[in-house]
Amino acid sequence: MASTIVTFELGGREVEVLVRPMTTLQSVLRNQLGQTATKDGCRQGGCGSCTVLVDGEPMASCLLPIEDVAGRRVTTLESLTPAEGLHPVQQAFVDEYAFQCGYCTPGMVMLSKALLDHDPAPNDEAIGQALAGNLCRCTGYRPIVDAIRHASGAMSGHDTEPVR
């Protein structure tokens, strides 16, 4: 099968890529566009390390054929990071030490951002449900949950102490 050209929006810019059939969004981001914040833990939808937002929804980019992204809006960790400083979700992950090795962190940050966009003050159950598809092998999740709570407070304007 021949290669095709796919156009989509990435971090507010239109990008155009030439791809062979069966190419995933993850592969385009990492291998063609050099956006390696999107991680590669399994390529089978099992770990969430490759989570990006497509039209604001968190998705496993390793399972998304690039053709399915045509004309849609993709947000990666590179596009989330402000030119200076950090996004409140990123800052919360720093403040709460919400990582050890850091390999799950990009996916966790994207997922948390999507969660807080939909539900600015998620309860524990909502946080647990949102995290269900993203694995962290190091932290035991607790500091990640704390970071999401912390970010929720920071983004709503009144900083809340995470409950320990």
């Binding site: 390696t36 960790l77 990123q90 720093v94 850091g102």
Partner: peptide
């Protein structure tokens, strides 16, 4: 005291270079 980890910003921005991130 709690001290910010030296790799913290790299991890939350995805700028940390893991071995397979290089090309």
């Amino acid at each position: 005291r709690s001290v910010e980890r030296s790799d913290a910003v790299g991890h939350v921005t995805g700028r940390t270079r893991f071995a397979a991130d290089r090309a």
